[in-house]
Design a protein around this nucleic acid. Structure first.
Length: 196
DNA sequence: TTGTGTTTTATTGCCTCC
DNA sequence: GGAGGCAATAAAACACAA
């Protein structure tokens, strides 16, 4: 036979002392204050606190246990948010570096075209010189520049540029990428960020 | 009022330490 | 082996939209 409402009410009165009740504001305040100074108080402290607040020592012990669990999960949540922020920052930095990389590649292409053009010009000059040798039957000075032998002409500038271009090629090919340190910074993660 | 999600109190089972 | 802590979970209390 199912219990009537009055049966349930009578039972609730009988069990009143065992019923679960939320702690009042004063009890919570005292427990919180104690937790601030000591999150894992000794048995004696818990007993004294329980007596003062009119609670069972076990209730106080359980409250501290639950409080520690709540506190831990809040802390974890906070750490997660901080990590997310630093992850986002890292993503922004990556995008900036990517753009910088792209502009360097464009610069590299321009330099290569410049070198090709210069090679063609050099070839033209060379063939013209050979023609002059034929006219006089004697070898002509290769360079009559007043700056003398120390100055090697625009070719040396192009050579320097070529060296830079070689370095950039390595970057282009994924070698010698100085920013690898960046990839390891903050995250401690060794996996490539190219997977963004 | 009621259904539903969240918070709080309490229990259980396992682990560690003395 | 007992005491106490922790993680997982149950269940009561509460908040709140519809």
């Amino acid at each position: 036979m199912a219990p009537t409402n009055s049966d349930i009410w009578a039972q609730s009165i009988m069990c009143n002392d065992n019923m679960r009740r939320r702690f009042n504001d004063e009890q919570i305040k005292s427990l919180e204050n104690m937790f601030e100074t000591e999150s894992r108080p000794e048995l004696r402290t818990k007993q004294q606190l329980a007596k003062r607040l009119g609670l069972q020592p076990r209730q106080v012990a359980i409250w501290f246990q639950n409080k520690r669990a709540r506190s831990k999960s809040k802390q974890l949540e906070l750490e997660y948010r901080m990590l997310q922020i630093s992850y986002d920052n890292l993503g922004s930095k990556y995008e900036l570096l990517k753009k910088e990389h792209e502009s360097l590649l464009i610069q590299l292409q321009r330099l290569r075209k410049l070198m090709e053009k210069d090679e063609i010009e050099k070839d033209v000059i060379k063939s013209e010189t050979e023609v002059k040798q034929d006219d006089f039957g004697l070898p002509l000075a290769l360079c009559e520049d007043s700056r003398g032998i120390d100055y090697l002409g625009p070719e040396s500038d192009i050579l320097d540029m070529a060296q830079i271009a070689d370095g950039l090629s390595e970057i282009e090919n994924g070698y010698n990428f100085e920013s690898r340190t960046f990839l390891h910074d903050n995250t401690g993660c060794t996996s490539p960020l190219w997977e963004f």
